[in-house]
Amino acid sequence: MPRLPAPLTLPPGHDAAGATGPDPAAARDRYRALRRRRRTETATAWAFVAPSVAVIVGLAILPVIWSLLLSFQADDLVTPSRWVGLDNYRALRQDPHFSQAVGNTLKYTAMYVPLSMLLGLGLALALNRKVRFVGLYRTLFFVPFVISATAQGVLFSFILDPQFGAANSVLHHLGISQQGFLTDPGQALLVLVAISLWSGTGFCMVVYLAALQDVPASLIEAARLDGAGRRHLLRHVVLPTLAPVNVFLLVWQLIESLQVFDLVYVTTKGGPLGSTTVVVYFVWQQAFQNFTAGYGAASAYVLAVALFVIAAGARALRRRDAGSPEGAAR
């Protein structure tokens, strides 16, 4: 007689249909274990992030709030401050020194930004080829960007010294009269622009080089097969693909030029006759030389508003380009 199979027994929590039913106690235990694990992970994450958060709050957020409140006060950093409302901002409108600083900053920006981008693009186009020692050339053009503005200022202060500098020595051998350079009110700002171009052009070159190497080779080859020359290739193929990079570099260089300070502080101290006083140097001068911290904070917030407008304009421009059919195609 064949042996009958042993009957199947269901474990607790199963119904007659064989489906596993909910176990309230086990579900609660799993939920509590999950919550404990999440709390542990959260605590561990905050333990790692807390030092950075403390630095950001202590060195960025709190000073911004404090300086905003300071801009509505009269404060000499010694005696107790007093609330003056918008008087600091009203005084800025009538201050000829602040107007001169704004004018110098705009002149510096108007010369430095387009020239740095044009020179950077030219160098990138020249070095985006299979040339012998091209890596060395790229490095040599980029090295000045790594040097700090303070070191640049010290270096060129010696080179451009009116009496003992190497620049006037070379000009003397060439039969050219001695130049004032950083001590001449008519030349000082132009010389600062030239020094900034010496260092800032390398950054634009590297960015443009990276963008040029991302231009599709098939697109260039198709344009050449259609008979496009080098000039037409640059105008109708290469430059349109560099539009996003142009926007990035424009905003970056604008922000850098509007915040120039180190080079001015090391070389000219805002002189001669205020010809190189820029907005950030004016802020430092008012706060730490004239001991009018509230007035300096107000001028700093005028600059901050200008930077915010530039950033907002760039963001709107990028959104418009991304929403257009051409931007979507790119």
Rank of each mutant, 00 (worst) to 15 (best):
A33E: 15
R224C: 13
E41Q: 15
R318D: 11
L171N: 10
L212D: 03
T277K: 01
L242W: 08
C204I: 07
W66R: 15
W66C: 10
G200S: 05
L127E: 08
I255N: 07
I65G: 11
Q179C: 08
V280P: 03
G229R: 10
S257C: 10
G274H: 01
G202E: 04
V283W: 00
G227T: 09
L254E: 08
R315Q: 12
R3E: 15
Y108M: 09
A50P: 10
R132K: 15
H236W: 10
R36K: 02
G294C: 04
N246T: 14
N290C: 06
L239A: 05
L273R: 14
R132M: 12
P2Y: 03
A149Q: 13
F48C: 06
R319L: 15
W252Q: 15
A27G: 03
W252H: 13
L160E: 04
G294H: 00
T183N: 11
P12N: 06
M111N: 10
I159G: 09
R132L: 13
R30K: 06
P22Y: 05
G135V: 08
I310M: 01
T183L: 06
F145P: 06
R32I: 12
P114D: 10
T42V: 12
R35V: 15
A50S: 13
V57H: 02
V207F: 00
V302G: 08
S257W: 00
S257R: 04
V170L: 15
Q259P: 00
A297C: 04
P144T: 10
F308N: 02
